[in-house]
Amino acid sequence: MATTSAEYIQHHLQNLTFGKLPAGYERADGSIVEATTWTLARTGTEAADMGFMAFHLDTLGWSIFMGLIFIGLFRFVARRATVDTPGGLQNFVEMIVDFVQGIVKDTFHGRNPLIAPLALTIFVWVFLMNSLKWIPVDYIPGIGMALGLDYFKIVPTTDPNGTFGISIAVFALIIFYSIKIKGVGGFTKELTLTPFNHWALIPFNLFLEVLGLLTKPLSLALRLFGNMYAGEVVFILIALLPFYVQWALNVPWAIFHILVIPLQAFIFMVLTVVYLSAAHEDHH
């Protein structure tokens, strides 16, 4: 366990990183890596030095675990979905499905069987990942420590990889449907001739439109990450206080997250639908 406050915070914000260390790298304990190896990072510096060739095992593991919970629960209900009087669980699932369906119907005006399931997946999955924040910050890392893992950061949405991973997929879909619906020519036209329909302004238009396009995944990912990360930092700061006063700040902050967690999941879903709706709309 880290000793100073700064170390404690840094420790809690470090992911469990499994990555490639190049040959000749000097590890934190002074040993030299002889050949290129894949290993767990022992310190934040090591994790950073692994560069791109690394995985955050905690982010991936927990997000996949949460995804499996989502899929398992919903598939369970879907398999025994009855037309007649639904049970409590089916009611609950149907409520969520109906909610998402309503949003998609209101926002998305095209015809695409992918959009609604996509929105549902985003909403529930992100919600589940966010909701890991309610688990006290020391519990799971403590267990990880007991198992010999130096770092364990359980909330995947406090890892930019987690949020960008989703937003990049959304971005790919935006590009895909823009081209599919408008054609390469139509999409190019939209990028170059709007908002100013004049050949001389093509570079300016292009700059503006590409910027607007790139802003979409960036804003999606950064909004979710920023909110979750900041919330997590506050939880960690609260955890630094003496244990007998923690509840005074911890409880209100956790209650506040009853609002924040679904709201961020909801915003991510709605913006995804809005962006994809825009990708489907042909203005010309």
Binding site: N15, M53, H56, N161, F164, I166, I168, A169
Partner: peptide, 15 residues
């Protein structure tokens, strides 16, 4: 806070 292969893993899982 490093961007790495987790990104792709997340994307694949999401897909």
């Amino acid at each position: 806070m490093n961007i790495n292969l987790t990104l792709l893993g997340q994307t694949i899982a999401f897909a």
